[in-house]
Structure formats: C-alpha cells, structure tokens
Amino acid sequence: MVREIKVKSLLNKHKKRDSCFLDDYTLNPYAGCSMGCIYCYTRGSKYGARQTPENVTNMDVALKADAASILKRQLKNRLRRGERGFIVLGSAAEAYPNVENDLKVTREILGLIKRFKFPVHVCTRSKLVLRDLDLLRAVNETAVLPDDLDYLEHGVFISFSFSTLDEGLARLLEPGAPSPQERLETMKKCSVAGFKVGVINMPVLPFLSDSDESLEAMVKSAKEHGASYVMFAALTLFGNGPEDCRTLYYKFLEDNYPELIPEYQKLFRNSSYPSNTYQKDLSRRAKKVSDKYNIKTRIL
C-alpha cells in the first residue's frame, strides 16, 4: 500500500520562466523518489523541503492524494487567466517511480495535460516513460504554446538525467535508477518515435565525471542516441542531517574515494556550491565539446 499525503496544490507557477528547462510550471505527482540518488539536490535544500511534505524521505515514495482532481481545477483556473506555459513534470521527484507502473497516476495527469492542451517537458530516468508515448504524442500534436514560444515545432520535450556513464559508479550513486545504458536506449526510442529529447548532465561530479574525456563521452553518447541538447551543471551539496546530500555524498567518498575528500573540501569550502572558478571552467569546457558535436547546451 502506497502512503498518500494531502496537498493543496499540485501545479506550481514560477514568477519567471526558467530559460534552461522552459518551465512556467512544475508538477510532481509523487513526493520522495525511488531512484535513491545520494547527490539529489532535494536532500537538505529548501527545494526538497517544499516538495516533500510531512517529512517524506527521499527513498520513501508517497502519492499526492487526489492529484488528478487538484490538477484539473488548477489547469482550469490557469486557462481562465490566459496563463498557458510549459509544465515540467518530475522537477523534484521522479514522475515514474516503481509504483507508477501499477498506480498510473502520472499517466492520468498526462491525460489532463492533453485535455487542457498544455505543453510539457518530462524529466526522468525511467524506462516507464515509453508506456506513455501515445499520450505524449497527442500532447505534442495538440498543445497550445505560450505566445512567445509559438514558433516552436514541439509541445513535448523529454530529458533524461545522468551524472555519469560509468555503470559501476552509477550503481553506487543512483541505486534505484536504470543503468546509464538503459537510459540512453530509452532516449533513443523516444527520439525514433519523433520526440525532441536531450540529456540533463546534472550533476557533473568533480574529479569523477568532469574530465574532458568524460564530458566528451557524455556528449558523444547523447548525440548517438538522438539527443539534440545536453544541459550541464556542477554538483551541489546541501544540509548536514543524516539523510542530506552533503552527508551522504561525503560518506560515499569516504567509502570509495577517500583521497578525494581534501579536494572536495577545498573546492566547496563552506558553500553548498563549488567555486565560481570551477563552475565557469566546467561551463567553458562543456560548451567547447558540445560545439564540437554540434549539439546545444540548452533546449533553445
């Protein structure tokens, strides 16, 4: 039995559209996430606190009760105000956790998005997105885009998240997620089906997946599997609690790469973010390799 939590809102409107993900709205049918990624920014950050009511832990998946009826009301209200925009599905918790295979709540939500003709950007690690390509195709064909994006040819984008292509490293960091190769193959199937797809290489892991060779392997693999964009961002480490990502990530380093701990301490110091110098260098190198393969570093 999946635990249910009560929420007042499912559709969260942003003051300003995110230029990378294109989201005017975010939507997470579930709280918590079965993927179990130890670096997840929702562990210990203010964003996670907002998305996981009633102290739902990251691995403890809970269904937001009456999700479809709440969303239906909210979409109607947004249409009355003329506030169309892209909905990012799965911004803070996987929209296709294991329980979705039986519950089909995300599928019901996509049906509502289709009915009200909103465009959608699905962010996922799951192979289960293939189940819903029929609905996503209908959304893609019927979505009414916001006025300033009406030149786009797509009402659906599907992005797949990665931190590394190394299968062994991924098993340690993302224990509940499909392997990187499975994600690439799923993305390829979505591309072949006619969808615009891409990679979210977030986070790039300092000293583990941030070398020039690793960045090139990510971009090359993305291109070969149908991606038209690869978005990069450095690792962030939040919180000091036992389940927060800073704590869990340093434990991962202690168990597997103890020699890197001093390097991380130097890179992050007292911040949740690596140094500005590191972030600018990562961005420069990511742009260079993306240009080499003629692939964008954002959707638009």
Results as ranks from 00 to 15, higher is better:
residue 187 M to L: 15
residue 187 M to W: 13
residue 188 K to L: 14
residue 189 K to G: 02
residue 189 K to I: 11
residue 190 C to Q: 08
residue 190 C to E: 08
residue 191 S to Y: 14
residue 191 S to K: 08
residue 191 S to Q: 02
residue 192 V to M: 05
residue 192 V to S: 01
residue 193 A to K: 12
residue 193 A to S: 13
residue 194 G to M: 07
residue 194 G to H: 06
residue 195 F to T: 07
residue 195 F to E: 04
residue 196 K to Y: 15
residue 196 K to E: 13
residue 197 V to K: 04
residue 197 V to L: 06
residue 197 V to T: 15
residue 198 G to F: 08
residue 199 V to A: 03
residue 199 V to G: 01
residue 201 N to R: 09
residue 201 N to G: 00
residue 201 N to H: 15
residue 201 N to P: 00
residue 201 N to S: 11
residue 202 M to I: 15
residue 202 M to L: 13
residue 203 P to Q: 10
residue 203 P to Y: 13
residue 203 P to K: 11
residue 205 L to R: 03
residue 206 P to E: 02
residue 207 F to A: 02
residue 209 S to W: 12
residue 209 S to I: 12
residue 210 D to K: 05
residue 210 D to C: 01
residue 213 E to S: 10
residue 214 S to Q: 12
residue 214 S to P: 00
residue 215 L to H: 09
residue 215 L to P: 11
residue 217 A to L: 12
residue 217 A to I: 01
residue 218 M to H: 06
residue 218 M to T: 14
residue 219 V to A: 02
residue 220 K to C: 05
residue 221 S to P: 00
residue 221 S to V: 03
residue 221 S to F: 06
residue 223 K to D: 05
residue 224 E to T: 03
residue 224 E to L: 13
residue 225 H to A: 04
residue 226 G to H: 05
residue 226 G to L: 04
residue 227 A to K: 01
residue 228 S to M: 03
residue 228 S to A: 03
residue 229 Y to P: 02
residue 229 Y to F: 15
residue 229 Y to E: 03
residue 229 Y to W: 15
residue 230 V to A: 06
residue 230 V to K: 07
residue 231 M to T: 10
residue 231 M to K: 09
residue 232 F to W: 14
residue 232 F to M: 08
residue 233 A to F: 11
residue 233 A to W: 13
residue 234 A to M: 05
residue 234 A to C: 05
residue 235 L to A: 09
residue 236 T to P: 00
residue 236 T to N: 11
residue 237 L to Q: 03
residue 238 F to S: 00
residue 240 N to H: 15
residue 241 G to S: 13
residue 241 G to Y: 09
residue 241 G to C: 00
residue 242 P to N: 10
residue 243 E to A: 06
residue 244 D to K: 04
residue 244 D to Y: 09
residue 245 C to R: 06
residue 245 C to S: 14
residue 245 C to I: 11
residue 246 R to N: 09
residue 247 T to M: 09
residue 248 L to T: 12
residue 248 L to N: 13
residue 249 Y to P: 02
residue 250 Y to D: 01
residue 251 K to M: 01
residue 251 K to H: 06
residue 253 L to K: 05
